[in-house]
């Protein structure tokens, strides 16, 4: 491993300047649970400066407003998310993913912002954040902008973040009545494993019918995959087994997985069907309880 410099800016502006000046040789670091591993594996040979995100106030924000929704700083570690009662109550879907990334040690450092910016096809937080209608707030040399999360990842480990930009926070609209969400992944072991397929979903119910739904998949395409058609097709339908079957079949059809050591194309497509049905059922149950 080569020499790496480290900088710890205390404002968004300072961070953006540092990254902008360094050009391609600097990388933001939140928890470091992806970037440090990649550096040690020589996967980032050109990087020689890490810019710490953890000391910037905006990136550590965690505000829950019943009207505006949730603003989650990009560097907030998982344990703070699942330790927060307001989030636990309003966004059980976020708790699902924050509490299954890595183990206790990893959750002490790892952030959902880092999970998103790392843009792995298997990133466990991304599908449910898409399903919840999340928006990324980005700051850069030429100002601030917002990007819906379904448009954030553009390829394997590639995102809309440009040179000098940082992800400041994630924003989620306040949940409405009778809304429920869930993230579910399939792993061969019970812990410390990488998703063979994953499904994040959010539903709003109306008198036993599905009023609206959003479903996104992980590990079955180069990017997390938002399958808008599922929501379109099941909106207005009763929240029953037949509807879940339809959703499962559509997820299976939408998935574009590869065969690798973690699973075959056929098996992963099959999992999309099974997981979509199971995950939607949990989201529906949660919506009923909410």
């Amino acid at each position: 491993m080569h020499w790496i410099d480290y900088a710890s800016p205390h404002s968004v502006r300072e961070a953006v300047d540092l990254l902008n000046e360094a050009g391609g040789s600097a990388r933001p670091m939140a928890g470091g649970t992806d970037v440090l591993v990649q550096l040690r594996a020589n996967a980032l040979p050109d990087v020689n400066l890490l810019v710490d995100m953890k000391n910037i106030p905006e990136l550590n924000e965690m505000t829950m407003d019943p009207e505006v929704g949730l603003t989650l700083g990009a560097a907030v570690p998982c344990y703070k998310i699942y330790g927060n009662k307001a989030i636990e109550h309003a966004f059980p879907g976020l708790i699902d993913c924050a509490s299954l990334i890595g183990g206790t040690q990893i959750q002490g450092r790892a952030s959902l912002g880092g999970n998103l910016c790392n843009a792995a096809p298997s990133g466990d937080s991304i599908p449910v954040m898409i399903a919840l209608g999340g928006v990324a707030r980005i700051s850069g040399p030429s100002g601030d902008r917002e990007v819906p999360l379904e448009d954030f990842c553009t390829g394997v480990r590639r995102t809309v973040i440009q040179q000098g930009e940082i992800l400041v926070s994630l924003h989620f609209p306040a949940p409405v009545a009778n809304q429920g969400a869930n993230y579910m992944r399939f792993i061969p072991r019970n812990e410390m494993d990488i998703a063979v397929a994953g499904v994040g979903c959010s539903v709003v119910l109306d008198n036993g019918n599905i009023k609206s739904a959003r479903v996104a998949l992980s590990s079955v395409a180069p990017t997390p995959l938002y399958v808008k058609e599922i929501g379109d097709a099941i909106a207005g339908k009763p929240a029953n087994e037949e509807t879940l079957k339809l959703a499962g079949q559509m997820a299976k059809d939408a998935a574009k997985p590869i065969t690798d050591m973690r699973g075959t194309i056929e098996y992963r497509k099959h999992l999309c069907d099974v997981l979509t049905r199971r995950s939607l059922q949990i989201a529906i149950d949660r919506a009923k309880e909410s």
Binding site: R189, N190, E191, M192, I194, R262
Partner: peptide, 14 residues
């Protein structure tokens, strides 16, 4: 699969 992530030995939870 040359790492313990993908060479899946059982963990205590398995």
């Amino acid at each position: 699969n040359t790492s313990l992530l993908d060479y899946r030995m059982p963990t205590s939870l398995d």
